[in-house]
Design a protein around this nucleic acid. Sequence first.
DNA 1: ACCTGAACACCGTTCAAGT
DNA 2: ACCTGAACACCGTTCAAGT
Lengths: 186, 186
Amino acid sequence: MPTPERTSLADIVGAARDIVEKEGLANLTMQAVAVRVGVRAPSLYKRVRNREDLVRLVTEATVRDLGKQLDAVAVNGDARRDLGELCRTFRAFAHAYPACYRLIFAAGSEASRLDVGSLTAAAASVLRVGMELAGPGEALEAARMITAWAHGFVSMELAEAFNLGGDVERAFEYGIARLADSLATA
Amino acid sequence: MPTPERTSLADIVGAARDIVEKEGLANLTMQAVAVRVGVRAPSLYKRVRNREDLVRLVTEATVRDLGKQLDAVAVNGDARRDLGELCRTFRAFAHAYPACYRLIFAAGSEASRLDVGSLTAAAASVLRVGMELAGPGEALEAARMITAWAHGFVSMELAEAFNLGGDVERAFEYGIARLADSLATA
DNA sequence: ACCTGAACACCGTTCAAGT
DNA sequence: ACCTGAACACCGTTCAAGT
């Protein structure tokens, strides 16, 4: 006789994201997730292969959300201004969900590798601005430069690695301005 | 009656670095370290507070090594050329020790925060090039832009996040060239 | 078909007892 | 002074038994 479902994959991933953000990745235990969704830990294995798989699902949900935020950035027609908006939105997302953001480029083992599609979708807006600024011949290189810089910057911020003083806001705006200059000039 | 020391902190950290690089962070267990240095796991706690502390020590040793490599980059007097050498050395280090490199900007909790001194020392060479390129008024912003881009780039590479094809080597050299242009022009 | 208790292997850590 | 076995709490995961 079938038993009614008492939870769902969406519930489980949602609970996991919450735990990662509020209590840290180390406290994301199967037991903690189970309590939140109202089942016992072994039941989670009906919907999730293992803990590593759950972390991957959390990461992919985060990438999709980031992609949506970047997609929603208004296109001004002014490539320079679009670049600034895009970078600030990217940074704001990382500040809003630092623990989940950190997972995105932390992939180590094969099993934790992200789905290619979700990364590609998230990169679409950046690719468009790269095209606007640098033209079709160097759009990909330009997009990679923008993403690398933006990710590196917020990654260092989140690690509290900017410890030489100075104004971090100013350093971020400085970076946007230099990027716009150099990509458009090239 | 005193017992002779059968290991040392340096031994322990060395073994831990080896394990992280060859078997991954997840396989860095106190037991695995103990076997390598020839004691039982509980003995490690005489020299290391806990596992998290050991990971921090591994990270700091890695930062010091990276700093040494960057310091050893020859100064050509040509800031543009120095920038290229510095970035390529940085990237080569990350490729040589990917698992340990990843730890550097992964710091989450307070206890895993790196010693400020070791980060500052590693940044000295970059700061010098930032000064050469952008002048004293914007040396710090320039150094932050260089570090953010270089870290972001290799971080994405290590995560295999460049999945739109294209030539990654070319994208790296493109980035160096754009950085040199924009920082020197500003 | 889903859920559970019981069980297992494994891990970090503590501590009293050895030398 | 350092090292160890024994012990504890905790975690991921499996599985037979329930409904």
